[in-house]
Simulated scan of single mutants.
Amino acid sequence: MAQQQTAADWPKIADLEGKRILITGASTGIGAAAARAFGANGARVGVHYNASRDKAELVARDVEAAGGKAVLIGGDVTKSAEIKRIMAEAAAGLGGLDVLVNNAGGLVKRIPITEYDDAIIDSIIDLNVRQVAHFMREGARLLIAQGTGGSIINLSSVAARVGGGPGSVLYAAAKGFVSTATRGWARELVKHKIRVNAVSPGVIMTPFHERYSTPEQLAVMQTGIPMDRLGSADECVGAFLYLASERLGSFVTGQILEVNGGQYMP
């Protein structure tokens, strides 16, 4: 697995300097790595968190130490009223918005179909589908009102392609929604010069797998990866930098960018 990169390691993309970027779920994992990389490019980064304020504060310090500006924004993304407040605080703190990264989400719980109940179904859909749709709505409204275009990057998963591992079918289906909706939203918003894409990670060693996957499950997953190793959060970051940059990604919209070591090749 690759080592965590420092500010000096990230490529410098000139047009990201000063960009106003909100990343949901930025206190740990892929969101935190993306925040640090955008900070190293001189961006203004809204570091959103829910329960992990202490970890978000560490990320914010890293963003500023790397040369960016960080704005901490707390809130529960499963509550629609909170989403409106999060977006308003981000716009106020950042001075507007150029890039929205819908990174927040989670497995919630591995559970077989025979044990589904209303509570688990609702919790997985709320965290991985409903909040993404709400953030898309609020982000689109803000970017359209500004009239300057922008980029929205959603987080999908290789699970959307293969149906998920043991007990994670609902999560995989939710990520399938994200991938499909990303393409539709891209078509709808292109007339406003808003690009909509998604990053689809494979098996990435973050708190997600530390919490939900056993060493034995991870070993089995690794056997299906041609690179024969698990990925790191830092190895996903280049995709976010590329899709956020108008210089690099200006003709890219409606795409699902796979970052999985060859685990799935569409």
Rank of each mutant, 00 (worst) to 15 (best):
G25H: 11
G25T: 02
K12R: 15
P11G: 11
S52D: 08
K19F: 08
K19L: 13
A56E: 01
R44K: 15
A56N: 02
V59A: 02
D15R: 08
G31Y: 07
S52H: 10
V45R: 02
I23V: 15
V47E: 07
E17W: 00
A43H: 13
A33W: 03
A60R: 02
T24Y: 07
G31W: 13
I23Y: 07
L22H: 05
L16K: 11
L58E: 10
W10D: 09
D54L: 10
G42Q: 13
A51P: 01
A60P: 02
K55H: 06
S27Q: 12
G39C: 09
L58Y: 00
V45H: 12
P11C: 13
A26E: 08
I21N: 03
G46E: 01
A32L: 14
D54H: 09
K19E: 10
W10A: 09
N50H: 14
A51V: 14
I23P: 03
A37L: 11
N41W: 06
A43I: 11
L22Q: 05
A32W: 07
A56K: 00
R36I: 15
T24F: 09
S52G: 06
W10K: 07
I13D: 01
W10I: 08
R20I: 11
A40T: 09
N41H: 12
I13K: 02
K55P: 00
R44N: 12
F38W: 04
A51E: 12
I30R: 05
E57M: 13
N41Q: 02
E17F: 00
G46T: 06
D15P: 03
T28N: 15
A51I: 08
G46I: 03
A35R: 07
A40W: 11
A43V: 14
T24E: 02
G39R: 01
K55V: 00
E57K: 11
G25C: 12
G25V: 13
T28I: 15
S52R: 14
I13Y: 02
V59E: 09
I30F: 05
R36N: 10
E57Y: 00
A37Y: 06
G39E: 00
E57F: 08
A37N: 03
G39K: 00
H48E: 14
A35W: 00
R44A: 13
R53F: 08
S27N: 11
L22S: 04
L16D: 06
G18T: 10
S52M: 05
